[in-house]
């Protein structure tokens, strides 16, 4: 009942992982601490050892590499906001980061922490899914990577084993044109999504080569709307009209599995899915067509 923990400060990522391996489930990584501190104070998590990652080199920063953008797990939401102009795929991520919490919290909260917390209502996770993102993971036995869809496994659970650490999130930047968009319903300016939708559309030579749609806050993890995606895939940009968007978006309601809670009812959430998907598609499509 008397709550205290040991504070550990590793010098390297390897040392951090070794500490985690040694102390097990009740050791926690401290990234931005914005979720962890609340959960600890409210008795939702028990921490014996807190491993502070904030001083480690190599986990922060947002880097443009050939074919991908690598977002360090310790990059903050504010870093994400400020990297919005780096590449078209980063615009949607930056716009979304700016919807989250407050400026003060964004300068502390990390992208990796947000993913590892794995809240069903997380704003970034459906967008990362729509952007085909992968998670780079390191453990005592080496590195591996896993798609964001597979990384998020349930309410507050991930694919990470007890001694693994999320190093970075990689967002592909295909040679073809890609635009993404995120839409949500929230209450006040500082809120988590009641329901959300993210889309990414990739076009090559005027034709949609890839369409991805993901819903947030309507299931334990982001849900892909594959039937909606296949409506648009292969279509010429010029042929897509409002009816097609409506049709693609219409498939969203069928895959949503929301709950009713204090924030919103399941019926409302389900009903908003097609609306948000349609709006996100229209937004992404507008930008795809806009400059061509």
């Amino acid at each position: 009942m008397i709550r205290q923990f040991d504070y550990l400060r590793p010098d390297t990522v390897d040392a951090a992982i070794a500490m985690k391996s040694r102390h097990g489930e009740r050791a926690c990584y401290w990234a931005g601490g914005t979720d962890l501190m609340l959960q600890w104070r409210q008795g939702e998590v028990t921490i014996d050892h807190c491993i502070d990652l904030t001083h480690l080199n190599g986990l922060d920063g947002i880097e443009a590499l050939p074919g991908e953008i690598r977002i360090g797990a310790m990059a903050t939401l504010d870093d994400l906001d400020r990297a919005a102009s780096m590449h078209p795929v980063m615009k949607a991520l930056g716009d979304t980061a700016r919807l989250m919490c407050t400026k003060q919290t964004r300068t502390l909260a990390t992208v990796g922490g947000n993913m590892c917390n794995a809240s069903p209502g997380a704003d970034l996770s459906p967008l990362f899914v729509a952007l085909e993102s992968r998670c780079l993971i390191q453990g005592p036995n080496g590195r591996r990577d896993v798609s964001m869809e597979d990384f998020l496994t349930g309410v507050n659970t991930t694919d990470l084993t007890a001694d693994e650490l999320l190093r970075a999130i990689v967002v592909p930047t295909p040679p073809a044109r890609r635009e993404a968009s995120y839409r949500r319903v929230a209450r006040t300016v500082v809120d988590i999504a009641l329901v959300s939708a993210a889309v990414s559309l990739t076009a090559d030579a005027g034709t949609i080569t890839d369409a991805r749609i993901a819903l947030g806050s309507v299931a334990p993890v982001p849900v892909r709307v594959q039937e909606g995606e296949s409506v648009l895939a292969g279509m010429a940009l010029g042929d897509i009209d409002a009816k097609h968007l409506e049709e693609a978006a219409g498939h969203a309601a069928a895959v949503a599995r929301p709950i009713t809670d204090v924030r919103a009812g399941a019926g409302y959430r389900t009903r908003m899915c097609p609306v948000l998907v349609r709006r996100a598609l229209a937004d992404a499509l507008g930008r795809l067509g806009g400059d061509e």
């Binding site: 006040t188 300016v189 500082v190 988590i192 204090v262 924030r263």
Partner: peptide, 26 residues
């Protein structure tokens, strides 16, 4: 937005500023 939410046992479900939504300056 503002409304306290009670469960069937009379317990308040949103006694926090995450789910009890106050308008902010913005």
């Amino acid at each position: 937005y503002e409304a306290l939410s009670f469960d069937d046992d009379g317990r308040i479900l949103n006694a926090n500023l995450l789910d009890y939504k106050l308008l902010r300056a913005a």
